[in-house]
Computed example of a mutant assay.
Amino acid sequence: MTTTNLLEFDLDGLAAFCERLGEKRFRATQLFRWIHQRGASDFDAMSDLAKSLREKLKGCAHVRALPVVSEHVSSDGTVKWLFDVGDGNAVESVFIPEDDRGTLCISSQAGCAVGCRFCSTGHQGFSRNLTTGEIIAQLWFAEHSLRKRLRADERVISNVVMMGMGEPLQNYSALVPALKAMLDDHGYGLSRRRVTVSTSGVVPMIDRLGNDCPVALAVSLHAPNDPLRDNLVPLNRKYPLAELLEACNRYLEHAPRDFITFEYCMLDGVNDQPEHAEELIRLVKPGGRVGVRCKFNLIPFNPFPASGLLRSPQNRVLAFAKVLGDAGIVTTVRKTRGDDIDAACGQLAGDVKDRTRAAERMAKQRTIPIKPEA
């Protein structure tokens, strides 16, 4: 008999599911806490649920994470998991530990259809959207496996960024319930300021997100003018810079932060010259071409053969940052994390397909190559 994975629901969805079982909403709240706060998957362990409800759930529901194909731990403590999502597809998630936070980078699609030149995931192509359950399962698994490993009683993951494989806003119907589960005080209780959706610029969906579930917004900008951005981010041909930045300004009316983060991948000789920085200033400063309250995050490019691109030298990155900073624009240079395990920005999905085929072979042997917990 087909059963329902309860990771597919935000709290409202789970309440509707419980109502169909003849149960009241407070039972859904109890169940939601067990699943997300405690990481429980065994209904018998949910001791404050009525025995009658536990028996009902056993017959129609389950709580199941994605199968883990592999796990890699970087020398800097970054952890990358490869999850099998079936039919030869796999997605990756990355946990980045820092002194004051723990950030999980989550995928929203298997592959990506946007096709940005500097992104290895885009060169893989697009397979399919993930379901809400497949999105939230990455957080569910990472949070509770890390708690066990670190022997932590409290939350390990304080920040979530939808910056893994895929364009989140092209999977909107699955994204929003997953965000709501992350934000819910009965779930992960994350602040809206600490959940970030990164988009390459799907303008209509930026507007919808601002109305439906405003969280922090990061926009993959990467160029100061339309001809260059058309080449680097093909979606710009549909939603050019002026439209995109106007959507950013509309989003700020709802956003939990008072600025938009613009991500800017530094490409040697392509978009990293002082004149590019000056053009960005004219684009985003008040009174400029469009003007938007923002900060810039300059990202070192992680080269891969199919791109034909190279990383900007560090001195040029710092000079670029200084031009922006001198104009009063808050600018940071992202530190590369996890590049020794292909977990750095733009590197996800490096050899996902080969590893997925390997996982399928090993699944027949009922084994998964995951490193033992410390």
Rank of each mutant, 00 (worst) to 15 (best):
M1R: 10
M1D: 01
T2M: 10
T2Q: 10
T3C: 05
L7W: 03
L7Q: 06
F9G: 02
F9S: 05
F9H: 11
A15T: 13
F17Q: 12
F17K: 12
F17W: 11
C18Y: 04
C18P: 01
R20G: 15
R20P: 00
G22D: 09
G22V: 09
K24G: 02
R25Q: 11
F26Q: 13
F26G: 11
R27L: 08
A28C: 10
A28R: 14
A28K: 14
L31F: 07
R33M: 09
W34E: 10
W34Y: 15
I35E: 05
H36C: 09
Q37K: 15
G39R: 09
D42M: 06
D42G: 04
F43Y: 06
F43A: 07
A45I: 01
M46N: 02
S47K: 14
S47T: 11
D48F: 00
L49V: 03
L49T: 01
A50I: 00
K51D: 01
L53E: 01
R54S: 02
E55L: 13
E55R: 15
E55C: 03
K56R: 14
K58Y: 00
V63F: 04
V63I: 14
V63E: 06
V63S: 08
R64N: 05
R64T: 04
S70Y: 07
E71T: 15
V73M: 12
V73Y: 05
V73F: 06
S74Q: 11
S75C: 11
S75G: 14
S75N: 13
D76R: 15
V79K: 15
K80S: 10
W81M: 14
L82W: 04
D84Q: 12
D84E: 11
V85P: 04
V85Q: 11
G88D: 03
N89I: 02
N89D: 08
N89P: 00
N89R: 12
A90L: 05
E92L: 08
E92D: 04
S93W: 02
V94H: 04
V94I: 08
F95H: 06
F95R: 14
F95I: 06
P97R: 08
P97G: 02
D99F: 02
D99A: 15
D100M: 07
G102W: 01
T103K: 09
L104D: 01
